[in-house]
Amino acid sequence: MSEVLPPSAELDRARAGDDDAFTRLVEPLRRELHAHCYRMLGSAHDADDALQDALLRAWRGLARFEGRGSLRSWLYSVATRTCLDVVEHRGRRALPVDLGPSSDRVVVGDAALTGVAWLGPYPDTGLDGPGARYEQREAVELAFVAALQHLPGNQRAALVLFEVLGFPVAEIAGIMGTSTTSVNSALARARRIVAEKVPPATQQRTLRMMDDVRLREVVEGFATALARGDADALVALLTEDVTWSMPPLPAWYAGRSAVMGFVTAVPFRCGSWRHLTTVANAQPAVACYLAGDGTGPYAAWSVNVLTLHDGLIAGVTSFQGAEHFRRFGLPDSLPPDG
């Protein structure tokens, strides 16, 4: 059995060049650091790269960690600076609703818009943890992460560090290499923009107010209605002002009538559907598989993240692409019926 060392002894070993000791120190923090990078960057793939880079920087600069604060805080500072470097050199990530008005007609055969860095979904595992005004799970909800993408890097970092992680303003100033006055100014501007774009009721609050039976009815009802092509069953689950978007496709639809026009013209006519339920961005989600010939096998098509309001579906964000399924641990295909 390997020796279990106190954190201070592990830190001494890591500083002496023991990379296994460093791995043991950071492993309990890896998941929350990855979520932090996702909030900053809006992409699980970019979060992978940023976290790997941040941990490499931390390993190489471990001698500079003097132990005055916690290792966790120091690693967050390294990860934040790494993400700020990424933000500086890349455009913000977007959803279709960020690019223009909703479509007033059904777009059939819409082509993927490849020149846009799209916001991506996030697996809902290991997100519970310490928080300040925003709970950790609330801080990966689609609306919040999408709103963060509208902020410059310094405002994004200040808001996440202060509101989500509870860092004091003076410490944030040190992380960002600026003054407390600048941090407070960045926080004020960031709060105004986020307040304009994020609904007052978070999805976590909405879900807590829903009966578990009703939640299952809505999620399973959505999936079953798609699979059966049942327009009446689907429309009964939608709010009047529901939206539906499908990154990387630029067209999106707003309002029950427009959404149902799209659904009956496109998904209902694509072939045969099967589904698996999952959770993404701390919200209910349905992974849809399509067999174009109606027999199978069923290929991974989209991870549909549902936004709920008053017991109904107020938004569907269909993230298309098999690459999303692998990150959620979902199979690339499902077998044919029968």
Rank of each mutant, 00 (worst) to 15 (best):
S2H: 06
L5G: 00
S8E: 15
L11M: 10
D12K: 06
D18S: 11
D19P: 09
D19M: 09
F22V: 11
L29Y: 13
A35G: 15
M40I: 01
M40E: 08
M40L: 11
M40Y: 05
M40V: 07
L41P: 01
H45K: 02
A47P: 04
L56S: 13
S70N: 06
S73K: 08
V78C: 05
T80E: 09
R90W: 08
R92W: 02
R92S: 12
L95S: 07
G100H: 10
S103A: 15
R105V: 02
V108Y: 02
A112R: 09
V116I: 13
A117M: 04
L119A: 12
P121H: 03
P121S: 04
P123Y: 07
P123G: 04
D124P: 00
P130H: 10
A132P: 00
Y134A: 00
A146T: 08
A146P: 03
Q149M: 15
G153A: 08
N154W: 02
N154E: 14
A157S: 11
F162W: 12
F162D: 08
F162P: 00
F162L: 04
F162G: 03
E163W: 03
G166N: 08
P168S: 05
I172M: 06
S182T: 15
V183E: 11
R189C: 03
R189H: 12
R189L: 13
V198E: 10
Q203R: 06
Q204K: 01
L215A: 04
A225R: 09
G229H: 05
V235E: 15
A236K: 12
T243S: 14
M246R: 15
S257D: 15
T264S: 14
A265Q: 13
A265F: 11
G271A: 05
G271W: 01
W273C: 06
R274L: 01
H275V: 01
T278R: 00
T278W: 03
N281E: 14
C288A: 14
A291M: 03
A299S: 13
W301N: 14
S302V: 13
V303Y: 08
V305G: 07
T307V: 13
L312C: 11
V316S: 03
T317L: 09
T317E: 08
S318F: 09
H324F: 14
F325M: 04
F325L: 04
R326K: 11
R327L: 14
F328V: 00
L330S: 07
P331S: 08
P331M: 02
S333I: 00
D337F: 04
